[in-house]
Amino acid sequence: MSLVSVQHAPAARPIPVPTGWAVAARQLRSVKILFPFIVLVAIWWAIQAAGNFPDRVLVSPQRVFDTMVLLISRGVIAEYVSTSLKIIGIATAISIVVGVPIGFAVGANRYAARSLEGFLRFLQGVSGIAWLPLIIIWFGFTHATTLAVVVYTLIVPIIFNTMIGTRAIPEHYGLALRSLGAARLRLITDVYLPGALPSIVVGLRLGMGYGWRALIAAEMLVRQGGLGDLIFGARTSGQIDRIIGGMIIIGTLYLLIDRMLVQPIENLTIARWGVLRK
């Protein structure tokens, strides 16, 4: 690992003690983030109040809030959320375990890389959701079907970016290690993995973005729980409050996963091993 980590950690800075002003500034910043949403909710409320819409068309923000509080307190939301999170989690794990080795194997050879590139683009062009009807014939209306669609969507960017990352590693790094007598496994752990890691994480982040959307779409059609089922199921009974509440949860949850989990990993990897990226 030390072979490629040329970048040095920045010198430790004294941790600034939050003063009254700093705290106020931080509060101001969080208000600033919320401000445009407050405006939006106000517009929504005004339209709803002025238009006198039936409940099947538009409900007030208050109503959505109340419904969400009720559903959360009864544990309904937790169940839908956990179903979705479980599937995206398993799909991510499968895609990494299967996709990264394929990416390495293909990336090591330029003919293989070229041959797979077009095929992967084609697969990406046929979205996972288009295969859904066929996969439903195979696995029925089950979580396995949803999982298959999400893995299909998630694995392509992971393979693709692992391949690109591997191709970008200067060849003499591998040659140097081999001439020092390193075995193939050492080559993977000490050259390929750290060298391609920033690119792999980029692929992971893209894949999770695509995969999350495919998950919601698949859940709408498979109807076996999950957030997609929550909002699509609410449509048949005309519960607009559930639909809008579900959309807010879907957006918030995705942003939480992306900003709190995936982006920090990406920044960390790029800071640590990003030296290999030109």
Binding site: R56, R213, I231, F232, R235, M247, I250, G251, Y254, D258
Partner: peptide, 16 residues
């Protein structure tokens, strides 16, 4: 935020 829910997430609301 709206980018995070762009596209297919709007389907149920927009069908109504």
């Amino acid at each position: 935020f709206f980018n995070a829910i762009s596209g297919i997430v709007w389907l149920p609301l927009m069908i109504t």
